[in-house]
Design a binder for these strands. Structure first.
Lengths: 231, 231
DNA sequence: CGTCTAATACTCGATTTCGAGTATTAGAGA
DNA sequence: TCTCTAATACTCGAAATCGAGTATTAGACG
């Protein structure tokens, strides 16, 4: 079993919302939207209802009443239980106090950089940079507006944090793209050569790896250290 | 259907590995480990085999031979197909060039900060800070070692990127913890007061929200802006 | 007064995901 | 030579996930 009975982060948001007052699921979703919490916690309707059901099954929340207005579908109003309150506090404690291993998709991409030619990668990084910087602009503008409305920072620290991460990403990929363009990245000589061999002579990377000394000489001693791991 | 036929990032790593040479699944997993790629892409055995099957079903890879050594279980060696090669390049292009909305668990936590008392939160942030800084140390040491072995940076940019993000996280939570401790965070007066009311007089946050003016006066005009969203 | 759109309020089930378990064997050490 | 551990090489099914679809209705607009 997973560490938590209900592990979807949306369940955390549901508990957080219900600890304020009883609500029906759809109301939770609109509340999250209106407060922008859907920027920090992924809101998906499919998940919302299954998560609510799971929370109820585990005794963290309970149905309070089912009402029907006109011909609208029934709405079940839920309220949080004491164990639910406890679970929320415990979960929050963990989220803040304990880092977890995250896997950023860009990390996955960077791990396979040589899979595309250097200049193509630089181009893609610059493309990403534009998008990231645009997002930074947007968030900054939103912050300015919230500040001008005297809406306390306490309620948007999560967005500040996101901004800090985006800025770090921007800075890093900016540098990296430049280093690739200028060949300042250690290993790029090999990278360029491998792609040249492939594009001009049709020798595939797989073939190159079969006889590295032939294609790259002994300048690339470290290649012995990336072992084609004899099976 | 999801944008990709096989969307698990591990599938990307499988394609990347097989574009080097044919392998059997378990060999892929050991290769990923020995190169530290499992730090950038989540490796789970359960996922590995289902992902390989899915890749085969979609024509991205194909079984090349099935061998048996001694009494060991059979091992099926897979190789990448041309469409697989194409899919890999396309996926890599997307991973690098296009940012995706990520949901960092700490963001979720920060979005509900008032759910714990201010000093407790500061304490938790400091606890997290320690762990994050320890990780930064570890990664830095690993980088030093790779550099001293003259192992080209090209092959560990993903780890550099991760380090950049961790440093940004460290800086941010360091500041935030301090701002909470010193009450420099706008909104912390309200935060403290709410918890005091609860801890000393037993008035729950839910009750406080029912009559904000009574408990917080008109200093907190912005509270009208966090609407208990009349249903 | 009729039509259209946007918002309301969900449901469904096909995929995906994953952790925990299993069985075997090579080699280290006693 | 025996035992024990670590590594090898997977399997399985319970649970989670999610996007796309559906049905209703209030109110805008002509």
């Amino acid at each position: 079993m997973a560490r938590r009975k209900v592990s979807n982060p949306l369940a955390f948001a549901v508990l957080g919302s219900l600890s304020e007052r009883p609500m029906h699921p759809y109301e939770i979703s609109t509340l999250l939207r209106s407060r922008g919490k859907d920027q920090s916690i992924k809101l998906n309707y499919g998940s919302l209802y299954s998560v609510v059901t799971a929370l109820e099954k585990n005794g963290f929340i309970e149905a309070r009443e089912t009402i029907r207005e006109g011909n609208r579908p029934e709405r079940t109003i839920y309220q949080i239980t004491d164990t639910g309150q406890q679970e929320f506090a415990d979960w929050l404690t963990e989220l803040i106090g304990t880092p977890t291993r995250e896997f950023h998709p860009l990390e996955a991409g960077l791990a396979y950089l040589p899979g595309l030619p250097p200049d193509r990668v630089a181009e893609l990084l610059e493309q990403r940079l534009k998008a990231v910087d645009a997002e930074i602009e947007e968030i900054t503008a939103a912050h300015d507006q919230m500040a001008s409305m005297e809406f306390p920072r306490l309620f948007w620290v999560e967005s500040e944090f996101r901004l800090a991460l985006l800025k770090a990403e921007s800075t890093y990929i900016h540098h990296l793209a430049e280093e690739i363009r200028t060949d300042a990245l250690d290993g790029s000589a090999f990278w360029r050569k491998a792609w040249k061999l492939y594009e001009e002579e049709g020798i595939t990377p797989a073939d190159q790896l079969k006889d590295p000394v032939k294609y790259f000489g002994t300048d690339f001693a470290w290649m012995q250290a990336i072992p084609p791991e004899a099976t």
